[in-house]
Design a protein around this nucleic acid. Sequence first.
DNA 1: GATGAATGAGGTTTCATTCAT
DNA 2: CATGAATGAAACCTCATTCAT
Lengths: 216, 216, 216, 216
Amino acid sequence: MRRLDPVRHEGKRREILEAAGRCFVRHGFKGASIAAICTEAGISPGHLYHYFASKEAIIGAMADLRLTEMAQRFHDVAADKEAIPALLAELRRKKSRIRQATPMVLELLIESGRNPAIAKIMRESSRRMRDLLAELLRKGQASRQIDPAIEPETAATILMGVLDGLKIVALREPKFDTEKGLVMLETMITRFLMPPANGAQRDPGIADKRPDRALQ
Amino acid sequence: MRRLDPVRHEGKRREILEAAGRCFVRHGFKGASIAAICTEAGISPGHLYHYFASKEAIIGAMADLRLTEMAQRFHDVAADKEAIPALLAELRRKKSRIRQATPMVLELLIESGRNPAIAKIMRESSRRMRDLLAELLRKGQASRQIDPAIEPETAATILMGVLDGLKIVALREPKFDTEKGLVMLETMITRFLMPPANGAQRDPGIADKRPDRALQ
Amino acid sequence: MRRLDPVRHEGKRREILEAAGRCFVRHGFKGASIAAICTEAGISPGHLYHYFASKEAIIGAMADLRLTEMAQRFHDVAADKEAIPALLAELRRKKSRIRQATPMVLELLIESGRNPAIAKIMRESSRRMRDLLAELLRKGQASRQIDPAIEPETAATILMGVLDGLKIVALREPKFDTEKGLVMLETMITRFLMPPANGAQRDPGIADKRPDRALQ
Amino acid sequence: MRRLDPVRHEGKRREILEAAGRCFVRHGFKGASIAAICTEAGISPGHLYHYFASKEAIIGAMADLRLTEMAQRFHDVAADKEAIPALLAELRRKKSRIRQATPMVLELLIESGRNPAIAKIMRESSRRMRDLLAELLRKGQASRQIDPAIEPETAATILMGVLDGLKIVALREPKFDTEKGLVMLETMITRFLMPPANGAQRDPGIADKRPDRALQ
DNA sequence: GATGAATGAGGTTTCATTCAT
DNA sequence: CATGAATGAAACCTCATTCAT
């Protein structure tokens, strides 16, 4: 005579997770108290433990949620676009959400240095995004829109770092004109990825003094 | 009956700050306890309050120290170099220190979103670095090593973001081949900053479909 | 529309009580949680309260069960035997069950010092055992197998204490050679109970310096 | 410039331990709350942790204290007496203290089934008492006051069990006439230990049907 | 009968901070 | 300067119990 309703259960779990998310953004992982999360979620302190075994578990579930949905959305964006436009689209999407979600992802990054469970989740998510991005770059190289000398895996990692850097800019300079910055970042990425001008010999610049290493 | 030897006092303060730094790296701001810091510094809990009024004050002093020394070192590096080489030198220096110092700077960034005192210190430090970098870019433009179409202030901010992004790469993928990544990052920056090839018409790429906006 | 099948009800009650027993042995009365008992019994927390009004009630029922069955089994053993053999038989039975049941009976003893309800149950059970044992001793005295100078009630109490002491030996020294100990205990009881050698004047020993008091 | 005063520290520790002891007797290990112990000791809840790392540690220290002082006192009693008188003296001493200390020792016994640290302490204490008692028995055998057929180690263990059994009697029957019981117990022990009557052939009783096993 | 969601008091422990010495 | 005893609020978590379904 079972009556556990998995849908309701999962729904409540999600609600609590979202409340916890708001608290984490406001106060950080350590700073957000169970009591505060429960108040935010509208439940009693004890009841939270029907859904999560510990605060750690909440943070873990949070990491899973945030990083998975980040990878998923990037996947969606990438699905129906060419390489460079897909990348720039992700950039624009990120900008619009940056104020709210950023601190938590950064905190997950820091936490992953101390919490192996989080580290595992994050490595997995990073790997998925990187593979997707590298695949995108390879497609671009096949269609000659991206410099074939660029090694896709490494470039994917670097580009992810650049996207992350954008988040930090937002923290460092809250009043920064993001639209302006975004356009310039697009330029940077485009110039980085596009193939050298047809036939012409591009000025190699400093890095190109060791072109085999640089682009391989 | 001397009251205080300011030099000794300042020295002890610094020692405590360094001990605190080690604790902060290990456990975060909230996670590092006064007791742990005192143990690490080899003093008693009560005595710590002769040097710092509160834990907040320690974090503040820490922000001051870390961000100031970061700006200062960048200043040193930039002093006697041309624009692009200076930037790349900073990049290389960062790489060597990245494993240890990064989490704390990230934590300061996050803390600054919650703690106005830290935010103030960080904005000041960011401003100094950005101005310096912009000045460098301007010098590069004057000597025709850097694309004159680039707006220095915005580019400086973006470049700082890229440097920060490198830190995150290190957290995301601890086993990442940093040397390879570094070389590729150098390529990216170089291609971004260098002026278009002389006389030749560079393929504008996607972003260049709106070149006036992109390069401001 | 039947309301209740008393047999089924009682059966389930017993099942729960046994599950609770296993938990009590593992974790003690305070340490065993209702949740753990329910898991062990395979029912839901709410449902347990159809059978028992409270945790206290479970402990009470447990005391009833354990102490009653202990008295009952002693009764069975004693039924068809002579005095001393019956006592020794009980001793042997106890030895075989001692590892598992002991801690809970001890815990009931302690609990009875704090919980009047338990104390009442235990006094009743003790009284039954003592009366039975005293009766046995009296029968032994009538058939001249037991020293007539021994006062049956007091001796019964002492003998019960000795049986209990055996439990503690098992706790104190888990590796104790119980067979050896048992044989020696049998010797002790036998020497205590048996009448002085016929006609011979037994060496009174130290205690016998006040024989009237010692043997009452 | 150290100023830690080990004497004061140890004194306070002892005070707390005694307060904890009173609480443990009243409510048991699990039932006695840290808050209650602190109130009883007249300190704040947090301060207790300057002296004990955890509640477990308190129980451990308690076990150490109680069992050590029990062994020590038995040692003192045994020092200047003959075998049987020493044993009976310990018995009398135990009786006078039995109402208060018993439940805690029993609780330590139970706890030792669940807590290896306590178990270790207790085994050590048991071993010391048993060795001392066995030594006493051996001396008694040498001076012909104790039956030489008795194996000292096993008998020592059994006798300790009997002493413990006395504690349980006190719990089982709070109104039991302990003086009467004590005298009878003395008789039992005396009859058990004393050598067979000189020259006379003692009625072997039931156990003596296998005398080689029983007394060896 | 049976479930599991829900409560809220109370458990142990941590911690920044103060203060007498 | 320096210590460590001392505080008390608040942290995380557990648990017996109730109740709608």
